[in-house]
Design a protein around this nucleic acid. Structure first.
Lengths: 211, 211
DNA sequence: AACTGTGAAGTTTTTCACAGCC
DNA sequence: GGCTGTGAAAAACTTCACAGTT
């Protein structure tokens, strides 16, 4: 039973693992100890065969006839995704969005901790936002390097997203979660994911019966 | 040249159209009038063939030898996605996230306008948040019905997401953008999309060189 | 020369269906 | 009887490559 297989796992499979993990956490909160590909599939509207096949990439996590022990599966998936450790994250941009991100309690128990909040605006620098004091952009490079921070969330206006991303990469960041509604260009070994609510809304309006 | 084809377009294609639209808007801001599948593809890191094939589902929007007129393509894609009209949206949940959503300026010019902000907590009801006054949940049904609002953004704690979703559907909402980190169950004709930053972060940590 | 639109080919992803185990 | 893990089959998706147009 492997945990980090040498054989290449499709990215689309990796993208589903966090959903499994989230649903498993929920099942656990509900007091369940064991689940099945069928139950998980119902929750997530994913076929049970798909779930079994996805999990089988990493070895046999289940028991025939019984299903999956939830605690065990959570531990295994956490290891695969490397969220059995806590990752330090920086937030860049202390506007409404950056502030909301900084206040959000939901990162903690899923593998992430916000370490610093940066902004370039003189009015914001030094301000207290929850437990953070807004730090100036010019300190970003030193802090990220010194603390070996690998992950950043980008919550600046679209016009500044590319140049901030460049700074982050320069400072050694390897993964960027970009909330700005613009595609950024980074070296091929840097991970980028996007969050743009409007793209989701526009995806849904396609299917709505016209006003 | 069709605009709403009878033949079934793959959902995965529909999901890319908002990205095209976003990139086109950006190109337009930069003063460009014409683009090509190649240029768009470079921006989005999508192959030019894919873009041409996706667009071809809706008819010939481009000109051989020339490319695509940006203004024209924006208009066509907006029509396909039905965002050539403005959709009224309600936000449920006036915590940090709901407040940040309500302040966000980026919905306006991409087809959406926030009409109301709801919360159930007595301390929040009546509070002024930007241009909104927080309304009580018990008024949700009437307001959504009266104004024929079809879209909601759900920014309540995970524990309440399902019951609020049920209320929304009951009130006639047809599309829900769910920010709560939990899968909700709705009738098959209701659209749901999810925004959960942690799933994106966990997707990226898979690829990071371990701490 | 540059570019679209598109069948055909190739690749990836999902589902099926069942042997094997509890 | 219920469930996993998995080859094989099916379906979906992407890329190729080129005829045809500007």
């Amino acid at each position: 039973m492997l945990v980090k297989p040498t054989d290449n796992i499709p990215d689309i499979v990796i993208g589903r693992l966090p959903l499994y993990l989230r649903a498993l956490g929920r099942l656990q909160q509900e007091g369940k100890e064991v689940t099945s590909s069928h139950e998980l599939g119902n929750r997530l509207e994913i076929s049970s065969a798909q779930i079994r096949k996805d999990l089988s990439h990493f070895g046999g996590f289940g028991k025939q006839g019984t299903g999956y022990r939830i605690e065990y599966l959570i531990e295994k998936l956490s290891t695969v995704l490397q969220v059995n450790q806590e990752w330090m994250v920086v937030v860049v941009g202390a506007g409404n969005l950056g502030i909301a991100i900084s206040h959000y309690r939901g990162f903690q128990d899923r593998g992430f901790r916000i370490a610093h909040l940066f902004d370039e605006s003189p009015e914001k620098i030094g301000a207290r936002i929850g437990e953070f004091v807004v730090k100036p952009m010019r300190k970003l490079n030193d802090i990220v390097r010194r603390e070996s921070i690998k992950i950043a969330m980008l919550a600046v206006p679209a016009e500044h997203a590319q140049s901030v991303a460049d700074h982050l990469v320069e400072a050694g960041v390897q993964a960027i979660l970009n909330y700005a509604p613009i595609n950024i260009s980074v070296p091929p070994d840097i991970q980028v994911q996007y969050i743009d609510p409007v793209t989701h809304l526009q995806h849904m309006t396609f299917y709505l019966s016209g006003e």
